[in-house]
Amino acid sequence: MLEIRDLHVQFHNRDREAVAGISLTIRDGEILGLVGESGSGKTVTAMSIAGLLPRKQCDYQGDILLDGDDLLHAQRALLRQMHGKKIGVVFQDPMSAMDPLMKVGEQVAEVLRIHTDMDAAQRRAEAVRAMALVELQDPESLYDKYPHELSGGMQQRAMIASAIVIRPSLLLLDEPTTALDVTIQAQILELLKKLNREEHISMLFISHNLNVVRKLCARVAVMQRGLIVEEGETEKIFRHPQHPYTKHLIEAIPTRESARRVKGERRAKKAAEATAAAKAAQGAAPSASAASAETREEGGIR
């Protein structure tokens, strides 16, 4: 349904291309993961799809086709028809992505206001329905609340509601869980899975967190320095990463063993420092104190 062909994006104030020729396909009804470290070009890719590139400040070429319609070179007026209606976007930090002076419900309903001719009551009903769909408690009363009255998780749910209220065919999620704590993150992932399954919304999920991608996406593309270095089924890539960068990323995921190893190293380092400090404090005194002996012993245990 979405096809990116040889996309290049070069910002005028940078030496290197932000996106250096990538091709990517999102199939109908799937969640594609896009991983990479910051600066790898994943967000620029998403912004190109969403038509949010500052066109005057960059050069771009290639094709982005959504159900056959060109997105990259389309006129602004045409793009505005796509925005919200066919493509919904959820950003990283819900607090700043919401207008602080507009009621939550009105923000959810704004897409309807722009793209449909529903009256206020219909818009409200639709917004409340979407807010219920993203499992916000008591959506009717949340409608009239302001963003600062909601928790971070609720704000992100509301942002998702505003992105799906008109049932777009594609949802772009740019690090939607990064600003949230781990339990809320897990809940949001479950919600996205449900929306994908029940509402048949295709998604592009951008993250630097491989664990999250592994939980959510059947297919994943790995980006580095503006290029896609590896692409395929998530599990296959996790088991047998081909590209050295992917291997590197996977090794960087903390596991129980690695966590224990890091902890041990940290403790040893601390003990060594304590010993050195104790020795310095005692100066030339030959007999080590009981305390420093103890720390040395502890440092020996791994």
């Binding site: 969403a50 949010l52 602004r76 007026a77 505005r80 028809q81 796509m82 925005h83 919200g84 209606k85 493509i87 919904g88 976007v89 950003f91 930090d93 700043s96 992505a97 919401m98 207008d99 602080p100 704004e110 897409v111 722009i114 793209h115 942002m159 505003s162």
Partner: peptide, 14 residues
């Protein structure tokens, strides 16, 4: 230049 403007554009506002 605030983020909510980007959100507003992504909803199709002119």
């Amino acid at each position: 230049n605030r983020s909510y403007v980007r959100t507003a554009i992504s909803r199709g506002n002119d």
